[in-house]
Design a protein around this nucleic acid. Structure first.
Length: 270
DNA sequence: TATAGTGTTATCGG
DNA sequence: ACCGATAACACTAT
C-alpha cells in the first residue's frame, strides 16, 4: 500500500487529527516493530507530551514532540497504515482512504498505539509487521523527496552507477519516495527499459524520466494514491500496454517484480 | 498447500 | 570503504 503518496496522506491525517493531544499511554510492546528500542522506552519518552508537527520525506514520516521531547519516527513498511480515533473512541479519521473505503474499528493488527488523555488513539495498523516505529530516526540519510526533487539532484541518480536504472530510482538514499509501482510507472511513461544500466541512460532518457517522475508522483498525490496510476491495472498476466496494446512483460529487476511494455521499453540504449 | 507481495536492511562478494 | 546483488524479515491474501 504505501509509497510516497500514501505516506503523505498518513502524515496529513496525523497533522489534522493527532497534533496537540496529550499522550496518556503508549503500547510499544511489539519489539520487532519498535526495534531497536526496549519495551517501555518509547512510552517513557512520550507520556505527558503531545505531537506538535508531522513531517514526511519519501516514505518516512516523523513527529516533533512537545517540551523538547524526542522525534517519533514512523515507517509504514509494506502494509502499514495510520488510524487516528477521535476522543469519542469510535470515529476513525484515517484508515483505508486510498482504497476508497473506510473500515472503522479494525484494530486486529495494531502494532503501536498512542492513547491520548481524551481517550482517542493513534495506531500503526500493519498486518505484515514490516513497519517501524523508533525515536529520532536517521532521516538525514534519505535523498531528496521525489515530489520536490530538482533536476540537478535527479540526474545523477538515474545516470550514475552500473545498477539497473530501476534500482537507482528505488534507492531511497538517492531519491526518497519511489517504490515498486511508481518506478514501473515512471519507466513506462519515459519509455525506458527498467534493466538498463544507469550509466547508459542517455540525456534525453534522463529528461523523460525526470518529467515522468514529476507527473507520476504528482498525479498519484492528486488522484488518490499509486493504485490510480495508469499502469497499475496492467501489471498482471495478460496485461497490455495502455499506449499501444502490446503485451506487458514481467521480470525481476532490482530484486522486485517488474512489468514493462514489450515494444516501447526496449533494452537498447538511446 | 504453495506463492507472491506497494519495503528495508544485513550480509556477502567484488 | 563503496557498490551491487541477494536473502531475510513477518504475515496475509490468493
Amino acid at each position: 500500500m504505501p509509497e510516497l503518496p500514501e505516506v503523505e496522506f498518513a502524515r496529513s491525517v496525523v497533522e489534522r487529527a493527532a497534533l496537540g493531544r496529550k499522550v496518556a499511554d503508549v503500547d510499544d510492546s511489539d519489539t520487532y516493530v519498535c526495534r531497536p528500542h526496549r519495551p517501555g522506552d518509547i512510552r517513557a519518552a512520550l507520556v505527558g507530551r503531545d505531537l506538535t508537527a508531522a513531517h514526511r520525506r519519501g516514505k518516512s514520516m516523523w513527529c516533533d514532540t512537545s517540551g523538547d521531547g524526542p522525534v517519533l519516527g514512523i515507517h509504514l513498511g509494506m502494509s502499514g497504515k495510520i488510524v487516528v480515533a477521535s476522543a469519542g473512541g469510535d470515529e476513525i479519521d484515517g484508515g483505508d482512504y486510498w482504497e476508497g473505503r473506510r473500515v472503522a474499528g479494525d484494530y486486529r493488527w495494531a502494532r503501536f498505539t498512542l492513547t491520548f488523555v481524551d481517550g482517542g488513539r493513534l495506531m500503526l495498523v500493519d498486518p505484515r509487521r514490516l513497519g517501524r516505529v523508533r525515536l529520532d530516526p536517521p532521516v538525514e540519510k534519505l535523498g531528496p523527496d521525489a515530489a520536490t526533487i530538482t533536476e540537478a539532484a535527479f540526474f545523477p541518480a538515474v545516470t550514475g552507477g552500473t545498477a539497473p536504472v530501476k534500482a537507482r530510482l528505488m534507492d531511497q538514499h538517492l531519491v526518497a519516495g519511489i517504490g515498486n509501482l511508481l518506478a514501473d510507472e515512471i519507466l513506462w511513461q519515459a519509455k525506458v527499459y527498467p534493466g538498463l544500466r544507469a550509466d547508459r541512460v542517455t540525456r534525453p532518457q534522463a529528461k523523460r524520466l525526470f518529467a515522468a517522475a514529476r507527473e507520476a508522483v504528482g498525479g498519484a498525490l492528486r488522484d488518490g494514491g499509486v493504485h490510480t496510476l495508469a499502469l497499475a491495472e496492467h501489471r498482471r498476466p495478460g496485461g497490455r500496454c495502455p499506449n499501444d496494446g502490446a503485451p506487458m512483460v514481467r521480470g525481476t529487476v532490482g530484486g522486485r517484480t517488474t512489468w514493462w511494455c514489450s515494444t516501447e521499453q526496449v533494452a537498447t540504449p538511446g
